[in-house]
Amino acid sequence: MENLHILFWLVKDISWCMIWKTLGIIMVFPTLSIALLITWRTRGIKAELAHNLAIVFWISANSYWMMSEFFGFDTVPIGTITDGKHLAIIPFSIGLFILLYYYIVQKPRETREDQVATL
């Protein structure tokens, strides 16, 4: 399933690159759906959950950015500090913060618990 996910993701991004709007938009759904399914299936393993959640937010941000360019609101000002495509920073940042939490808080906690368990 992960290999199929990569295929869908590549087709989506190639469609974006080639400005094939319909195919690009259609490919968001299987790409994001499989990412969500993989995340759900790995939810019991904290490292996998964190990384797969980050991927879900990455695909979401990437898809939003693609659609902002397809529909022409990528350069539309939103407020005084950003434009349409830059709102993709929100899901990108959520994914980044999930990984930062995992590596700064969760992983060290797991390492300490493993060390205590082996003593």
Score class of each variant (00 low, 15 high):
Phe8Tyr: 05
Ile38His: 00
Lys46Ala: 05
Leu36Arg: 04
Lys85Thr: 02
Val105Arg: 07
Phe57Ala: 06
Gly72Ser: 10
Gly79Thr: 13
Ser33Gly: 12
Thr82Glu: 05
Phe73Asp: 05
Asn52Ile: 01
Val11Lys: 01
Leu10Asp: 02
Asn52Cys: 03
His86Gly: 02
Phe97Thr: 08
Ile6Cys: 09
Met1Asp: 05
Asn62Met: 14
Ile59Ser: 06
Leu119Ile: 09
Glu48Phe: 10
Phe57Trp: 13
Arg112Lys: 15
Gln106Ile: 15
Met18Ser: 08
His51Asn: 11
Gly79Val: 12
Phe8Ser: 02
Glu110Ala: 14
Phe71Leu: 12
Gly79Glu: 06
Ser33Thr: 13
Val11Trp: 01
Lys21Tyr: 07
Leu37Ala: 11
Leu23Phe: 06
Val76Gly: 00
Cys17Ala: 14
Ser60Lys: 01
Thr118Val: 15
Lys21Leu: 03
Tyr102Phe: 13
Asn3Thr: 15
Thr22Leu: 09
Tyr102Leu: 05
Ser68Met: 14
Met18Thr: 10
Ser93Ile: 04
Ile45Trp: 02
Gly84Val: 06
Thr42Lys: 11
Lys12Gln: 13
Phe92His: 09
Arg112Glu: 14
Gln106Phe: 09
Thr42Pro: 00
Ile38Pro: 00
Thr80Gln: 07
Phe57Pro: 00
Trp20His: 09
Lys46Glu: 13
Thr42Asp: 08
Ile98Asp: 12
Trp40Asn: 07
Arg112Trp: 07
His5Trp: 11
Met27Trp: 02
Trp40Thr: 04
Val116Leu: 14
Leu32Arg: 03
Met67His: 07
Phe29Ser: 02
Ile81Met: 11
Glu110Thr: 03
Ile90Met: 07
Ser68His: 12
Arg109Val: 10
Asp114Arg: 15
Gln115Lys: 15
Leu10His: 08
Ser60Tyr: 04
His5Pro: 00
Met18Asp: 06
Ile25Ala: 01
Leu7His: 09
Gly44Leu: 07
Ile45Cys: 09
Leu96Ile: 12
Met27Gly: 03
Ile89Pro: 00
Ile34Lys: 04
Ile89Asn: 10
Ile55Glu: 03
Thr42Phe: 10
Trp9Thr: 10
Asp74Arg: 13
His86Val: 08
Tyr64Trp: 05
Ile81Cys: 06
Val56Leu: 03
Phe92Gln: 07
Gln115His: 13
Gly24Arg: 13
Phe97Ala: 03
Arg43Phe: 13
Leu36Gly: 12
Asp74Val: 02
Ile55Tyr: 01
Ala117Met: 14
Met67Ala: 12
Glu2Tyr: 13
Ile45Lys: 13
Trp9Asp: 02
Ala47Trp: 08
Lys107Asn: 07
Lys107Glu: 11
Met18Ile: 13
Tyr101Thr: 14
Leu119Lys: 15
Asp74Ser: 05
Cys17Arg: 11
Ala88Pro: 01
Ile38Val: 12
Phe73Asn: 07
Leu49Gln: 03
His86Phe: 09
Gly44Pro: 00
Asn62Cys: 11
Thr42Ala: 11
